[in-house]
Simulated assay, not measured.
Amino acid sequence: MTWTNRLRLLGGLVVVLVIVAACTLVFNQRQSAVASTSAAIAAQEYAVGTDYGGTVTEEYVQEGDSVEKGEKLLQVQSLQLAQDIRKGVVGADTQTSAYDIGEDGFITFKAEVSGTVAKIDVKTGGYVQAGSELGTIHKADSLFVTSNFTVTPRDYGRIQNGAEVELRLPDDRTITGTVKNVSVETNDAGRAKTTVDVESPELSASPSTGITSPGTPVDATLHLRDDGTLAGVTDAVRDFSRQIGL
C-alpha cells in the first residue's frame, strides 16, 4: 500500500469518526422541551356556602354573569336562623363580606371577590341543606393553566419555577407563560407524572368566558433547564458506569 493510499485511508477513518461522534452527540443530546399530555385553563375558585338550611327565595345572578365584590348573589330564608335571631344567638342586622342577615331568617349571600359566576347549584323555591354549597365564583384576573407532563426523573430535576412555557390556545394563538408551581407522582415505570401550574399575564387578563374560559383545553410546551451541549453524553456515560458497577 502506497503512502498516498495510507493517507487516504487515514483521512477516511477520521471522517468516519467525526461523523459517528456527531451522530452520537445528537442522539444523546438531552431534549430541551417537553410537550404536555394534557393541559387546560383554570381559575381561582371561591365557593358560596351556607351554614343554615333553608329555602331559596331570590336569585340575583345567573351562571356566566360578571359580579363585583359585595354584589348580591342569592337569598335564603331559614327557620333555624329566625329562631337563633329571636334567641339572640345571631344579630338581626349582622353584615359580613360574605352575607347580610335580616329579620325573619333572611340571609343574603354576596360575592366575596369580583369575577364571573361559574356555577349556581340552587334554584328559587328549592331547599338547601346546612353546610352545602350554593355556587362558585371564578375570581377575575386569576386564569392560569394546569398541565400534565410525563418525564424521566432526571428531566424532572430540570424543571424550574419561572421556566418558560409556550401555550397554544384552540384558536392557534400562542402565548407565553412561566412555571408557578410543580407537583409530581412517580409511576411504576419510573416515569415522573408531573403537574405544572402556569401563569401568564396575557391569559389572566383575558375574560373567563369564551375561548379562555376555565376548562378549555390547550397545548403546553415546557422548556427544561439547559445543562450544556455534552449533558446528554455525560448522562449516557454515567448510566453505563452504574450498569457495570463503577
Rank of each mutant, 00 (worst) to 15 (best):
T136G: 02
K139F: 07
E133D: 13
G131W: 04
V151E: 02
P153K: 00
T136M: 14
T124M: 11
F144T: 02
T152C: 04
T150E: 14
F149E: 04
Q129Y: 02
V145K: 03
G126T: 07
S142W: 04
G125E: 14
Y127C: 08
Q129A: 03
G131C: 04
T124L: 11
T150C: 01
D155A: 01
D155F: 03
A140K: 15
Q129R: 04
D141R: 15
V128I: 08
K139Q: 12
V145L: 10
G125N: 13
G125M: 14
T124Y: 08
L143W: 15
E133G: 09
T124A: 13
K123Y: 06
V145G: 06
V151N: 08
Q129S: 07
T146W: 07
G126I: 07
I137M: 06
R154D: 14
T152W: 02
D155Y: 07
K123D: 11
T136W: 10
N148P: 04
G125R: 13
K139T: 08
N148E: 10
T136S: 12
E133L: 12
T136H: 08
E133Y: 10
P153W: 00
A130F: 07
R154T: 12
G125V: 03
A130I: 03
D141T: 14
P153I: 00
I137W: 04
A140M: 11
P153Q: 00
T146R: 10
S132P: 09
D155P: 01
V128W: 08
S147Y: 06
A130K: 11
V128S: 13
A130G: 11
F149Y: 15
D141G: 10
L143Q: 14
I137N: 01
V145W: 06
G131A: 13
G135M: 05
G135H: 09
V151A: 06
L143E: 11
V151F: 03
T124R: 13
V128K: 09
P153E: 00
T146P: 05
S142L: 08
L143S: 09
R154F: 15
L134G: 11
V128Q: 09
T146D: 13
G131T: 06
G131N: 12
V145M: 02
G126K: 15
E133I: 05
H138R: 11
A130P: 10
K139M: 07
T136Q: 09
D141N: 14
P153H: 00
T150N: 10
V151P: 02
T146F: 00
V128E: 09
K139R: 14
A140V: 09
N148C: 02
H138F: 03
K139H: 02
T146K: 12
A140N: 08
G135E: 10
H138Q: 10
V145P: 08
D155E: 08
F144L: 03
P153D: 00
I137K: 00
L134F: 05
F144C: 01
K139I: 06
T136N: 05
T146Y: 03
A140S: 14
F149Q: 06
L143F: 12
E133F: 09
T150K: 12
T146L: 14
T150R: 15
A140R: 12
Q129C: 01
H138V: 05
